[in-house]
Amino acid sequence: MGLRMDLQYFAESGGQEKTEKATPKKRQDTRKKGQVAKSNDVNTALILLFVFILLFAYAAVPGQFLHDLFMEIYINYVGMAFTIENVMALFLDLLFEIAVVLVPIMLAALIAGVVSNMVQVGVLFAPEAIKPKLSKINPINGIKRIFSARAIVELFKAILKIILVGLVAFGILWLYADELLRLALVDVMDGFHLVSYLTGMIGIASALLLLILAVPDYVYQRYDHEKQIRMSKKEVKDEHKKMEGDPLIKSKRRDRAKEMAMQRMMQEVPKADVVITNPTHYAIALHYDGDVMAAPTIIAKGADYTALRMRQVAELNAVPTLENQALARSLYDGADIGDEVPEDLFRAVAEVLAYVYRLPSIAPKRYPEV
């Protein structure tokens, strides 16, 4: 059986051991399914703590209710005729009064349950976790869970908690043994106050003890959850491929992005003062405005086909084109689009711009007052 499970695990992991931490997508997917690191012991301890703290401060209300109820039963209800109508009326009356007393306690338990879950897993709505599945009612799987190592561990934990809570309760009762032995000699309400006080103390002490015991369980649940959602290297690679999409679609997307980038760059070429070429392999478009720029700026550059397109656009828009192989190659390798000309190329670029500005077709536009 163990060998078969190992082989199944090996096959499901694609022949690789699950050694990689879960990716953010895997964590999100498992969270949507309701698979999160959560300790039920934390929920139980916090619910008990909230409820017993409320009972500790709220004991006078149910105590007075029980006192009034017994008084009313012995005074008003004892002589009542035993009919269906009277029994139903009495039942509905008592049900309403009991509900009024118990609603605050039930609300405290509800709030504690919500808070304990939010502390552990945050805000989570996972309807997939409550979908009916045949595997959940499979008797074979149920038997496996009953006799699994986890079930044995939970059994020992439950026994340990029962023993410790029993010791706490016994210790508190032992401290108040004299008062408890005198209960028959005190007033009913005084006796009720003592019992409710001891019950609250036992409940709060037990809840605090269970909360302390729940901390290592929560740590273990987080460790076990991380272990369960581990991935093999193949699963990580497959997930990346799936997220990135089909290679053909990726290629088309890249081509589209390059085309759009080229279109934007070609729109900048008409603004250039000069296009420096290699003459066929490289093209660099430069623009300089002394009022707003500290140095000439590269507004477009390209190689091969892109360089050819730049020269064509420059020709159509009457932008001067100047061949300078060394300068074109240096500018292409030394700066990106939007960068200023490197300092070591200032002199060469200044000579090119000075030459361009003296051209008959450029000088009148550049210096209209001359």
Rank of each mutant, 00 (worst) to 15 (best):
T83H: 01
P368T: 01
M1Q: 11
P24S: 03
Y9N: 15
Y176A: 13
R329W: 04
G302H: 02
D246Y: 04
I75C: 07
L173A: 02
H193G: 09
P270D: 07
A158Q: 10
K301Y: 04
P139M: 06
K144H: 07
V215C: 03
Y77S: 14
L183Q: 05
D238V: 02
P364V: 05
K38I: 12
V114P: 01
L327F: 00
Q35E: 15
A108C: 13
K227A: 11
Q228F: 06
D304K: 05
A99I: 14
A37H: 05
L46N: 12
Y176V: 06
S330H: 08
Y197P: 00
K252Q: 11
Y357W: 03
I84Q: 15
L124K: 00
L92V: 11
K21A: 12
A303T: 08
N278I: 09
Q120A: 04
V61I: 14
G290F: 12
L194T: 04
F50C: 02
P104V: 03
A112R: 00
T306E: 13
M106W: 08
A126Q: 04
S251L: 10
I172M: 06
A335G: 10
E369C: 00
S135M: 06
D339V: 02
A60C: 01
H281L: 06
P364R: 03
F82Y: 13
D68Q: 15
N76T: 12
I298P: 11
N278E: 08
A326N: 11
L286R: 12
M310S: 08
G245A: 04
G171A: 14
V274K: 01
E235A: 08
L164S: 11
K21Q: 14
M260K: 13
D255N: 10
